[in-house]
């Protein structure tokens, strides 16, 4: 038996739930892609350049090792944040790694109801910077078990959220009632997002992918008005008066 030496690990695996944007290509023609994407970047520069992107090649397109490279390079040069190629029967890990990309299966993905991309206000030519303000979603009806609600900005819920329901927001979540379901704030990685509720009975709370299940919520805050925030990697619970 060899002796086992205890060493402090230099790595740590962490589980995260992350949102990605799928960019489906309907052509592999580099110049067509360049034209359309640079047009869209003018309208929505910040969003498009930061969003982690998975490229999905439309099933009608012919693929060979040669024609993928120009398309991928075009996207890269335009500053698109490329992460991976969608894994299909025609695209495997080797194909992707020659292009310097990973692969992802889209089979798990849940379609996320999103508003249309932010469109530049063409009437006000002076405004060159796209405003970052996204509308707050206000929910006045109870959110029932099995329902999912997604907001690109903040979310305000004025009625109870049942066990088995899911609230997801890129911004903050406020529940002015009993939160019994799941609340995931900052789903696109905004670690400054917060969760507020009048009665904390959540099944799971998460801010920018750092989550806690019901069992791990501090007893003192159960069923109380609470404000949750992320400080570094730790979740902070503050009583609301």
């Amino acid at each position: 038996m060899t002796a086992v030496v205890e060493e402090k690990s230099v790595i740590e695996f962490k589980g995260r739930m992350l949102m990605m944007t799928v960019l489906q290509l309907r052509t592999l023609d580099a110049s067509q892609l360049h034209q359309e994407i640079s047009q869209r970047l003018e309208d929505a520069a910040q969003w498009l350049q930061e969003a982690p992107v998975v490229i999905d090649i439309h099933s009608d397109l012919e693929i060979d090792h040669v024609n993928l490279m120009p398309a991928v390079d075009t996207l890269r040069n335009l500053g698109v944040n490329l992460v991976a190629l969608a894994r299909t029967d025609r695209i495997d890990i080797d194909t992707a790694s020659t292009l310097g990309l990973g692969t992802l299966s889209l089979a798990g993905g849940r379609d996320v109801p999103r508003r249309t991309e932010p469109v530049a206000d063409t009437s006000a030519q002076g405004a060159s910077q796209q405003s970052e303000r996204v509308e707050t979603m206000v929910v006045e009806q109870p959110v029932r078990s099995g329902q999912q609600v997604y907001s690109r900005g903040d979310m305000i819920v004025l009625a109870p959220v049942s066990t088995g329901a899911e609230l997801m927001a890129e911004g903050n979540i406020h529940v002015y009632s009993n939160l019994r379901g799941r609340a995931l704030a900052g789903v696109r990685g905004d670690s400054s997002a917060r969760i507020f509720c009048q009665q904390l009975n959540a099944e799971l709370v998460s801010i920018a992918g750092h989550y806690r299940v019901a069992e791990d919520l501090p007893d003192a805050h159960r069923n109380q008005p609470v404000h949750l925030s992320l400080q570094g990697e730790a979740m902070h619970f503050t009583a609301l008066k």
Binding site: G15, M17, S105, A107, G108, G146, T163, G164, E203, L204, Y211, V213, A214, E215
Partner: peptide, 27 residues
Amino acid sequence: GLRNLDLIMGCERRVVYDLVNVINGDA
């Protein structure tokens, strides 16, 4: 969609991932 085994087993406060997550490769 109508889960209740977790309630009967008393682990409803520890559910993170489920059968569909495993099928889809999320976990």
